[in-house]
Write a protein that binds this DNA or RNA. Structure first.
Length: 258
DNA sequence: ATGGTAGGCTCCCTA
């Protein structure tokens, strides 16, 4: 008995619905964490996904951001938004307990890109990462298997970048964001791709023929608590979804747990 | 130093 959990930045759920439903039918992941819905909860194509046997929890907003959890198992204890700033209006975090035979907690996280080092958006990115650290620290006290998947907008190492020189000092590779990511690992979370020994690119820019040149970065990740990491069987990237016509610029990352 | 593409929405913002 294994369970398959995927994370995918869809870059607009309404533009990507055919890709998503085709993939759900074909690969049948048990749990899917989505980012960049770019729609409100009312606009979310709930019925099309429920018809495929998924329970759906969304945290949407107009135009930007938006995250969701899809699960073949019932969801409980759903919470929307990241603790630490009640004024934050951006929909970038949703969490729930998956009532599978082996219960575990999941979250779908969409870390802000940060636009430019030194900008207000970059400062927000650093504050968001600090709030994420504080919250994930709290989750570790629950003694549950924890699976935090999403678009972290951080390439942890130069090995996670096709052309490290071109990306040096950028919002995706800066020490100021790599430090906080490393702190999550030092705290006791495991980078699933590294544990499985299969790190691979997850994002290729739409511009300048990046996909054709395999000019990608690994910025979408699964962080696992020890109880979840002990069950890890594989971590792969479903690159076929990036190769479709009118694709998202991200490919799903898929983990299989025993 | 800039531009290249995409999505949503409005003539621009975010990525």
């Amino acid at each position: 008995m294994t369970i398959t959990i995927a994370t995918w930045n869809v870059n607009s759920i309404r533009s990507r619905l055919e890709h998503l439903t085709g993939w759900l039918r074909e690969d049948k992941p048990d749990v899917v964490l989505l980012q960049e819905l770019k729609c409100t909860d009312e606009q979310f194509p709930r019925m099309e996904i429920e018809d495929l046997g998924y329970n759906v929890a969304t945290f949407g907003q107009k135009t930007y951001n938006g995250v969701a959890i899809l699960s073949k198992f019932p969801l409980s204890d759903v919470s929307r938004g990241l603790a630490g700033d009640t004024d934050d209006a951006q929909a970038r975090y949703i969490e729930a307990v998956v009532e599978a035979p082996n219960v575990f907690r999941v979250a779908s996280v969409y870390v802000v890109n940060g636009q430019e080092v030194g900008s207000d958006k970059f400062a927000y990115k650093l504050r968001f990462l600090e709030r994420l650290r504080a919250h994930l620290q709290t989750l570790l006290t629950y003694d549950e298997a924890i699976v935090i998947g999403g678009d972290y907008n951080i390439a942890p190492d130069d090995a996670d970048v096709h052309n490290p020189k071109a990306w040096a000092g950028s919002v995706l590779t800066h020490d100021d964001v790599r430090g906080p990511f490393r702190r999550l690992l030092n705290m006791g979370y495991y980078d699933a791709a590294k544990v499985a020994g299969t790190p691979a690119f997850t994002w290729w820019d739409y511009r300048a023929g990046a996909l054709q040149k395999d000019d990608g970065l690994r910025i979408d990740h699964f962080l696992l608590s020890a109880l979840a990491a002990d069950r890890l069987q594989s971590c792969t990237v479903a690159k076929k979804l990036r190769e479709l016509e009118k694709a998202s610029d991200h490919a799903p990352v898929v983990v299989v747990l025993k």
